[in-house]
């Protein structure tokens, strides 16, 4: 469980983009929800990937209707809520190793 270190948290897509810009140490993986105020997950993903095309973004949302779109714009994976902590860790490791 302690293999991961949380570099930061954002309450919405806009905060996620500015946080990503401000972090000197970039994250190995970004967990992204979709339905958020101000800026949703899809738009935030597009912006982050335009800043750094190597950023690894894993979608974690209850709204799986955006799965196709998320993957097509460059998310490395999509995990549908609800999931357990071990399942999430397993997913993160799997996608990190794959890419």
């Amino acid at each position: 469980m302690n293999r991961f270190k949380v570099l930061g948290q954002a309450n919405n897509g806009e905060e996620a983009v500015s946080l990503f810009k401000s972090l000197s140490e970039k994250p190995d993986i970004i967990l992204m929800d979709h339905r958020m105020p101000i800026k949703n997950g899809i738009d935030a993903t597009k912006e982050i990937l335009s800043l750094d095309s190597n950023a690894k973004i894993l979608f974690a949302s209850a709204d799986d209707s955006v799965k196709g779109e998320a993957l097509s714009i460059g998310a490395i994976g999509f995990t549908t809520k609800p999931f357990s902590i071990p399942e999430l860790i397993e997913d993160m490791e799997k996608f990190l190793n794959e890419t």
């Binding site: 799986d64 809520k81 609800p82």
Partner: peptide, 10 residues
């Protein structure tokens, strides 16, 4: 059901 309930369960 698809979104809100799943979020709560999560």
């Amino acid at each position: 059901f698809a979104h809100d309930i799943n979020n709560i369960l999560q």
